[in-house]
Design a protein around this nucleic acid. Structure first.
Lengths: 341, 341
DNA sequence: CACTTTTTGGCAATCGGTTGTCAATAAGTT
DNA sequence: AACTTATTGACAACCGATTGCCAAAAAGTG
């Protein structure tokens, strides 16, 4: 017996422990475990037995260091507080796990600087990046994308793979829905100025309104949170519109609460349309008419695209953009326009 | 000019690039960057300049491998779909980030086996572990805890640091609340049999009921999801009770929906109490009387405890258990017991 | 049976840091 | 000036894997 370290109960087994136990060298163990067919099946069996016996788990750091791939993907969200991201996170988590990847979840606190720092950090730590609602400018995104695999969600930049939730189309449906209910004074309760999806939706909406000969006022900007729903509700009431299309469901739900407090009937006095169909949109009061987006699916698709970027040549042609359809879900927060008094 | 590698635009700078640029060796750079005062301030300045110039970011894997600490903490949740965990995740994320740690989020899919595998995996990958609502038995938890820093949330095992949400106490408040409203037929809609918080709550509740001379029936088990609220609601109606205390808010919200469908008035016919006060409990219809738990705080406290375990001797005496108080929040889903017909 | 081809497994360098040890230099003391 | 003590920074081993290269062994061929 030499003074060889061996595996003590407290120290996890290393590849060398496995090698010693099965009478081969570390490199052979490595091959047996990761290159199928490279090692004789009898040796392979011995190694597998030793692996099981020692309860050997390869050290992820060491693997990452030597192979250059971490088997981890970073998911950056602007605000982990927002239920919208929950569904994204759920989608990415499920899909990443299925592919044997680890998810690094980072909240960038809606800050451009934090986002950029994190990206630089993750360049070493993750094999790829999923950015949701990035605050960075197009040029920066393109530059980062050139350096490491990356997929954006709800952000369309030339040359950067992306998953887009096609809310603008459904926003038009919402407009038609309201018009058909007799509404002629409609307002859009805008989200943050820096949000691209906000601009995209407004552009689509105002164009559609013009086509249809209706006027849609733009109010805001408001923070995309329930608490700013109060201000949004008051602005809406003050504007004299009979229907409001909110930037997202959080705002819409906040508006419902505020309108109830003020004794304004929904939908008898004012109709409200939300966006995203987040958890809660179906059981708030009244249940929210909203634009249903396949959020979780967006997360899953983003992962799929990213992984085919990270591991090319698996036969799947990586698509560079994926637009997911959305639709209008009509619930009880919209109704006929009130009779003009 | 030798053929030294140097930093190409595409390859992130390494510690040796920095060393070369500032005319010292790698070890000096390492010390300059992590051991304040160990290096002469002039050298330090040169190194810092070089660091900035090369945009040097230390490789996390290499750091982890050599130092043995990954600066990452794994957070295991049973079901990432459950909004209860969202608040936990938010809390842990915020606190970990503040301490410079990365959060590894893992969904164990309510499976004991997945949980155990993940733990074994994370033993190498993370410096510590936060388990929420673990499915593992006491002995296993104690064993794992002896091997690596770990904190449980809502799970009390001898020798394992834990954060407990004291829902039993508030459950008694809920009972008193219902009794004072004239209810004498009360039911508890139980959660999963394997859930410890379920057993804890039932124990507290049935004891309190006995003390007060009231009978509380136990129904279930039901899955802690909105969809199982329908079954729970029907069971409650069938039991003849006039008030139900649900295992959690998800179930309670599902019950509200089902009762509305069935034309059962809440609270006129039946009162409902939830638990956790998750996102949505305040705006469902009717707004839910529930036990408000500081969930996000639980996440933060767990991280604080864990970090003081990981980095001992920072002056803070690590507490081994932290019980967070909860309280009853009375909203509109509870009311006077209906007159007996 | 001698020779070529394939299979199999070992050696050693490498990934990018950390850290114990120690020599050289600077500063302090008598 | 000679000697002790403190600072400072270099050397090299190490963390735990991967992987290119090569030699030994096994299998195939004329």
């Amino acid at each position: 017996m030499s003074a060889s370290a061996g595996a003590t109960p407290d120290r996890p087994a290393t590849i060398r422990d496995v090698a010693a136990l099965s009478g081969v060298t570390a490199s052979t163990v490595s091959r047996a475990l990761s290159t199928p067919g490279r090692v004789n099946f009898r040796t392979q069996a011995r190694i597998e037995a030793a692996t099981a016996q020692l309860n050997y788990v390869p050290n992820a750091q060491a693997k990452a260091l030597s192979s250059g791939r971490t088997k981890a993907v970073a998911v950056l969200v602007a605000d982990i507080t927002n239920p919208f991201y929950f569904d994204i996170i759920r989608g990415t988590q499920l899909q990443l796990k299925a592919a044997g990847y680890t998810q690094l979840l980072v909240d960038t606190e809606e800050s451009e600087e934090v986002e950029l720092n994190t990206i630089e950090q993750m360049r070493q730590t993750a094999d790829g990046l999923i950015l949701t609602a990035s605050r960075l400018d197009d040029e920066t995104l393109a530059r980062v994308s050139a350096k490491m695999p990356m997929v954006t969600i709800n952000r369309d930049v030339q040359g950067v793979p992306s998953v887009l939730l096609d809310t603008p189309t459904a926003t038009n449906q919402a407009l038609d829905h309201l018009i058909s209910l007799g509404h002629s004074h409609i307002a859009y309760l805008g989200g943050p100025e820096t949000s691209r999806s906000n601009s995209r939706r407004w552009a689509a909406l105002s164009a559609a309104a013009q086509e249809r000969g209706v006027e849609v006022a733009r109010l805001g900007p408001f923070a995309p949170r329930t608490y700013s729903g109060a201000a949004a509700a008051d602005a809406l009431v003050h504007s004299g519109a009979t229907a409001g299309i909110a930037f997202n469901d959080l705002m819409a739900i906040g508006m419902l609460q505020r309108l109830r407090e003020r004794g304004v009937g929904v939908p008898s006095d004012i109709s409200i349309v939300g966006c995203d169909d987040i958890f809660g949109a179906d059981f708030c009061s009244p249940p929210l008419t909203t634009i249903t987006a396949p959020i979780e699916q967006a997360g899953r698709v983003a992962v799929t695209m990213l992984l085919s970027k990270i591991n090319p040549g698996l036969g799947n042609f990586p698509r560079n953009q994926s637009v997911l359809p959305t639709h209008l879900t009509i619930r009880a927060s919209t109704g006929s326009a009130p009779m003009p008094r």
